[in-house]
Design a protein around this nucleic acid. Structure first.
Lengths: 144, 144
DNA sequence: CGTTAATCGGACAATTTTATCCGAAATAGG
DNA sequence: CCTATTTCGGATAAAATTGTCCGATTAACG
C-alpha cells in the first residue's frame, strides 16, 4: 500500500505530534527508537517532511523535531503520503495503465474508483492530532 | 497498491480469459503485445499463475495459455493477487507493524480495516469472466 | 524422424527502494 | 571562543523488484 518510507514517515509524525503536545522536542535517535525504524533512513524521511513544512526542525544542541500547535490539527495524513509517495495512490491506475479514466477505463477502473476515493477521504480527514490522542490514552501503539 | 508483476498478471489473465471465451489459445508474445508489457517478465508471471492452477499452459507448437470454461467464473482477482503479491495487502498492517490487530492496534488500524475489507471484498467478488466481458463489448481497455 | 514453435527454468542484469556513513553546518551553553 | 550536540546533504551500499537471455523440454506436423 504505502512504501516503507511512508510508513516510517507517518509513524514518526504521529510520535512527534504526541511529544509536541507536551512541549517536548525530539531527536531522530529517540524517534527511531520509539517507532522501531532504521535511524539514518528515518533521518532522511524527516528531512523530507521538514522541507515540505509538515514538521519543523531545529539544529544544534536541544534541537530536534516538533510540530507546531496550530499544525497539529491541520496536518492530515494525505499531506504526508503525498510528500513521500507522491499522489500515485490517488491518481494512478490500479492496473498500471498510463491513461486510465472514465473515458478510457481499465477493466477495474469503476471498482477502483470507490475504494480509492474512500482511502483518499480517510487520509484527508485524519489529522495527526487525532492519531496522537489515541496513542496518549494508550489505545494504540507505534511499535512491533 | 499492487506490484508491477501483479498488474501484468491481472491484465494478462483478463486477456487470456477474453480469448479463451472464443476458444483461442494465446502465446506469451501475443499477450505481451496486447497488454503492453515486457515479454520475458510476463512469461515469468504466467508460469507462476500456471503453477498456481489459475491459468492453463500447453507446450509445443499451437501451444500457449488458456483458461478453462469452468474456471472463467470461479477465478477471482483475489486469487491472482494472492498468487503473485501474497496476502500482505489483506493481512498486513497499513503502517508496517509486525503485529497489529484489534488487541494491539496501530493508530490507523480501525480506519484501515474498513478500506481493506472493501478492497478484499471487491477482489473476492470480481471474476475474470466479468472483466473479460467488459473488454469484449469495448467498454474497457488493457493498454496505455 | 526431423524441424519448428511454443513453454519452462535457471542465471544474469538493470533499476528502484531501502538503508548506512560521514563530513558540513548550525547553535546552545560553558 | 570552544565544545558538544544536533540536523543537513551527498556519496555509497545492500536488498528487493523488475526485466533479459538462453539452453532445455515438449509436442505438432510434414
Amino acid at each position: 500500500m504505502f512504501s516503507k518510507a511512508c510508513e516510517y514517515g507517518i509513524r514518526a509524525s504521529v510520535y512527534i505530534a504526541l511529544q509536541s503536545m507536551e512541549g517536548r522536542r525530539v531527536s531522530v535517535n529517540e524517534i527511531a527508537e520509539e517507532i522501531d525504524s532504521p535511524i539514518a533512513f528515518t533521518a532522511k524521511i524527516l528531512q523530507q517532511l521538514s522541507r515540505s513544512n509538515i514538521i519543523h526542525s531545529v539544529k544544534g544542541p536541544t534541537g530536534g523535531f516538533e510540530i507546531e500547535r496550530e499544525n497539529m490539527e491541520s496536518v492530515k495524513l494525505n499531506m504526508i503520503v503525498k510528500a513521500i509517495d507522491g499522489d500515485d495512490i490517488y491518481k494512478g491506475c490500479g492496473l498500471g495503465l498510463k491513461e486510465c479514466n472514465a473515458d478510457k477505463p481499465c477493466p477495474l477502473h469503476d471498482k477502483f474508483v470507490d475504494i480509492r476515493s474512500d482511502l483518499s477521504k480517510m487520509l484527508r480527514n485524519t489529522s495527526l492530532y487525532e492519531l496522537a490522542m489515541g496513542l496518549e490514552v494508550g489505545l494504540t501503539y507505534l511499535k512491533r
